[in-house]
Simulated assay, not measured.
Amino acid sequence: MAALTNTITTTEVVEALDIEFLKNFNGDVSRLTEILGLFGPEIVPAGTAMYTYTVTGSLNTTSVVEGDEVPLSKYEVEKTPIGEHTVKPYRKLTTAQAILKGGFENAVMRTDAQMVKDIRTDVLKSFFTYLAKGTGTATGSGLQATLAQMDAKLSDTLETNGDAADRIVHFVNPYDIADYLGNAQVTTQTVYGMNYIQSFLGVTDIFVTNKVTENTVYATPVENIHVYGVDFASLSQAALEYTTQDGGLVGVHHDANYARTSSETYALVGCDLLAENLSYIVKGTITDPSGD
């Protein structure tokens, strides 16, 4: 007997779950890249070596006698390997008993949403590991002075290297900025799990996150931040069918596991958030303005 018209099939339900998962994850990243003014993820093959970079050297300004050979200026780019760009697999299993007891929305959809948040947290954790490798340092008495000193240090480094930054982004611990926010009228929005303030304390682009330890602030130019993704297309040749969107950030697949009477969520993450040039990362240290 033929199926009834407009029958909702299992495949359509699974596809809807995949799309919802992707929408939540990619929406977070898209909002972050929009705020930063980035052009979206850069696609690189899985297994590509990833590096952070430090540039050293200076311009040779020795006077040249007419007709004499021009002296060489010497620069070096030190590459620090940080591993390979790879995909990270995650999996969640929801039993039939859990679905029947808590309902489909609570048991599957809400836990999928939490899984997206946890994956996002893992990506951010790696990003701040990269930031901690930065070579620039600055110290200030209180948060506002520290931010000013960091921007001065970064601007000095950029100018020395003949560079400039359109915008500098700052990452601050919630407790270090709490007192300032309590006495000011500012508009905040949530971006990739962080609170974002467009302009405050004389600087622009402040992200507030507990991924930064107290009394520590990071600053880097927007241009130094890159988002990488992988090409999932080749996986389908090995019968690994993931639902993906442009950018190669994440693939997701929902499936029924009848052997365990469960529903499974598979996520394969190819997203890396990286600040590449270590010289263009400044770590600020906040000292107590009272001197205590």
Rank of each mutant, 00 (worst) to 15 (best):
residue 130 Y to L: 13
residue 130 Y to N: 15
residue 131 L to M: 13
residue 132 A to H: 09
residue 133 K to F: 03
residue 134 G to D: 06
residue 139 T to K: 07
residue 141 S to Y: 05
residue 143 L to E: 00
residue 145 A to P: 03
residue 145 A to C: 02
residue 146 T to W: 00
residue 147 L to Y: 03
residue 148 A to M: 08
residue 149 Q to G: 08
residue 149 Q to R: 11
residue 151 D to H: 14
residue 153 K to P: 03
residue 154 L to A: 06
residue 155 S to R: 09
residue 157 T to P: 00
residue 158 L to W: 01
residue 160 T to M: 12
residue 161 N to Q: 13
residue 162 G to C: 03
residue 163 D to T: 01
residue 164 A to N: 11
residue 164 A to G: 10
residue 164 A to W: 11
residue 164 A to E: 10
residue 166 D to H: 03
residue 167 R to K: 13
residue 167 R to T: 09
residue 168 I to V: 07
residue 169 V to T: 10
residue 171 F to L: 11
residue 172 V to D: 01
residue 172 V to T: 04
residue 175 Y to Q: 15
residue 175 Y to E: 15
residue 177 I to D: 06
residue 177 I to G: 06
residue 178 A to I: 00
residue 180 Y to Q: 13
residue 181 L to Q: 04
residue 181 L to P: 02
residue 182 G to E: 15
residue 183 N to V: 14
residue 183 N to F: 12
residue 185 Q to F: 02
residue 187 T to L: 09
residue 188 T to H: 05
residue 190 T to N: 05
residue 191 V to H: 03
residue 191 V to Y: 03
residue 193 G to E: 07
residue 194 M to P: 07
residue 194 M to S: 05
residue 196 Y to T: 10
residue 198 Q to K: 08
residue 198 Q to R: 09
residue 199 S to F: 00
residue 200 F to Y: 08
residue 200 F to M: 03
residue 201 L to T: 03
residue 201 L to A: 06
residue 201 L to W: 04
residue 201 L to N: 07
residue 202 G to Q: 13
residue 202 G to N: 13
residue 204 T to Y: 11
residue 204 T to K: 15
residue 209 T to W: 10
residue 210 N to C: 01
residue 212 V to I: 12
residue 214 E to F: 12
residue 214 E to V: 14
residue 215 N to R: 14
residue 215 N to E: 13
residue 216 T to C: 02
residue 216 T to V: 13
residue 217 V to K: 09
residue 219 A to D: 13
residue 219 A to H: 11
residue 220 T to M: 10
residue 222 V to W: 08
residue 223 E to S: 14
residue 224 N to K: 01
residue 224 N to M: 09
residue 225 I to L: 04
residue 225 I to K: 08
residue 226 H to S: 08
residue 226 H to T: 08
residue 226 H to D: 03
residue 227 V to L: 14
residue 227 V to E: 05
residue 228 Y to K: 03
residue 229 G to T: 03
residue 230 V to Q: 00
residue 231 D to H: 02
residue 231 D to L: 01
residue 233 A to F: 06
residue 233 A to D: 13
residue 236 S to V: 11
residue 237 Q to I: 07
residue 237 Q to K: 11
